[in-house]
Every structure is written in C-alpha cells, then in structure tokens.
Simulated scan of single mutants.
Amino acid sequence: MPIWLKAGWVFFVLAVFWVLEGNYSLIKFRYKKWKHAKTNIALLFFVMVINAVFGVITLLVVEYGSIKNLGLLYIIDFPVWVELLFSILVLDLIAQYGVHYLLHKVKWMWRLHIVHHSDKHVDASTGTRHHPFDFVLRETFALVAVFIMGMPLSFYLFYRILSVLFTYFTHANISLPLAVDKGLSYLIVTPNMHKFHHHFELPWTDSNYGNMFSIWDRMFGTFIYEDVSKIEYGLDISNHTNDESLATQLRIPFNKKVVSK
C-alpha cells in the first residue's frame, strides 16, 4: 500500500472520530483541542515513518516465507476466510495484547510506554501517541506474528486497516449507550473498556490491554469493566510532566526524575 494511501486512511479515520467526539463526548474536556492534538500528531509522524520502514521489511519477510513455504498457513488447509480470521486473531494476540502486556510489565519497556499514558485528555488523537521506540517494539512483534503465520501480504494489510480503525475508535472521547458498549465488550474492545486502561493509577492501568478483541483480556484475567465516571486520565508517576510538550515526551524514557512503577 502506498504511504500516501496509508496516511489517508489514518487521517480519515481520525477525522471521523474527531468529529464524533465533538458531538457525543464521554467527558466534557476544558482544553484547547488543537493544541492538545499537536503533540500527538507530531508523534504520529514518527509512527508513520517507522511503519513505512517496517512495511518494506514485512514485504521481504512475506516473500521469503512464500519461497520457503514457512508458516502455519502452509501447514493447515482451511477456507480463506478461516485463515484470514486466524491470522487476525494471532496478530491481535501477539502484536497488540502480547506486546502491550510486556510494555506494562518489563521495566525498561514501561518507561517507553509512559508517553502513551501521560496524556491527561484522552481523545482520538491519543490513539497514535507512542514514543518512537515503543512503536518499533510493536512493529517488531507484528513482524514476528507475520513470520509465524506465513500469511500473505493481503491478510496483513487487512489487519492494519482494522487496527487503525480500532485504535481511534477505542481512544475516541465518545459515549456509546452503556448497554451497547458493555454488550460489545464481550467480543471487541470498546471506548469505555479501553478508557479504564488510561485511568491514572493501578490496578486499572494494568488491565484491558487488547486492541481489537476483548477475548484475550477475558481469557488471561486482565479484563475489567467498572463505573466509567470514576476514570481520571494521566499517570500518577508522570503527571508532573508537560503532556503537551513533544520534547518532554520524547525524553521521558531517559528522564530519571520520572519514576517507574
């Protein structure tokens, strides 16, 4: 997929949820929305560059796997739709839930991930608020999943399209009817469900790691769904930092004044 088409999809989905959260807000923020988004969009630039580099690497891995017939999909023989669903589930488990869990549990990885949690006004733009080194780890895990599965590039592309959609959907400051949000959360990650993950303190911070499917959180005991009105954004160990300063955010992993849990 050309880089301009990737960027177009990202900004289209971001724009849709940007508009929706302006009319159906979960929390009425008193902030300058564009100023807040500036840092997150700047971090998105790094994300897009890293994604482009890994796109080339992924293409090489897929081609190598097809030549050598490496991967689970070369062993099993199921209908295409089953293989596609299986590939998406494995990608979601390894490249989303798995790496996200480690980002919270491994100390040096957590320091990278603090940047994502330092946002005190979680909205759609927070979806791609990642330190560059954080995103490199995510892309590396995705590459591992592609190699394990031996999936065609079309499967991976479809996964990325869905992943972008869910990233902005779950971070968007939108309010779905409680019954709808809670009902959907039995299968997929919903806006309310993911907001608990952005609560400023434990234990909620270490829960709801999923990106698309909520089944992993339910399966591994990391799922919670409480009273959404109790959520406070930010992070208790880094709330003294300027969450709207790009330079400050890029330095957080190396700033000894920012403590780790």
Rank of each mutant, 00 (worst) to 15 (best):
V164T: 09
H100Q: 03
F147M: 00
M109T: 04
R111F: 13
F166G: 03
M151E: 11
F166P: 03
L165D: 04
I114A: 07
S118N: 14
V164G: 06
N173Y: 03
K182T: 10
I161V: 11
I174H: 07
K120C: 05
V144M: 02
L112S: 02
L103V: 09
G150P: 03
R129S: 06
L176H: 13
P132Q: 02
Y159E: 02
M151H: 10
H130M: 13
P177H: 15
A172T: 08
I114N: 07
H117F: 13
P132E: 01
L184C: 12
F147C: 00
V146W: 01
S154F: 12
F158Y: 12
S154L: 13
F133V: 12
L137K: 03
V122P: 03
V99P: 01
S154V: 15
P177N: 15
K105L: 11
L112G: 02
V122C: 04
Y168K: 09
L184G: 09
L157R: 13
H121W: 13
Y101K: 14
V122H: 08
A179G: 11
F147T: 00
S118M: 15
A179T: 15
L143E: 00
S175V: 07
G150M: 05
L162T: 04
D181S: 13
G150Q: 02
H117P: 13
H121Q: 09
H131D: 02
F141P: 00
F158R: 08
N173Q: 05
F155E: 03
R111Y: 08
D92M: 14
N173M: 07
P132N: 02
V99M: 03
M151S: 12
A142N: 08
V136W: 02
T140K: 05
M151G: 06
K182H: 11
H121I: 10
Y156Q: 08
F135I: 05
F135N: 06
L102M: 14
D123W: 12
L176M: 13
D123G: 06
H100E: 00
K120H: 12
T128F: 14
D134V: 04
H100P: 01
S125G: 02
L102I: 10
G127Q: 06
L93N: 04
R138W: 01
L157E: 11
P177Q: 12
N173H: 08
V136H: 04
F135E: 05
H116R: 10
T170E: 06
I174L: 10
V180H: 05
T170Y: 07
D119V: 10
F147P: 00
P152C: 11
F135L: 09
D119P: 14
S125D: 01
A142G: 14
P152V: 07
L162E: 06
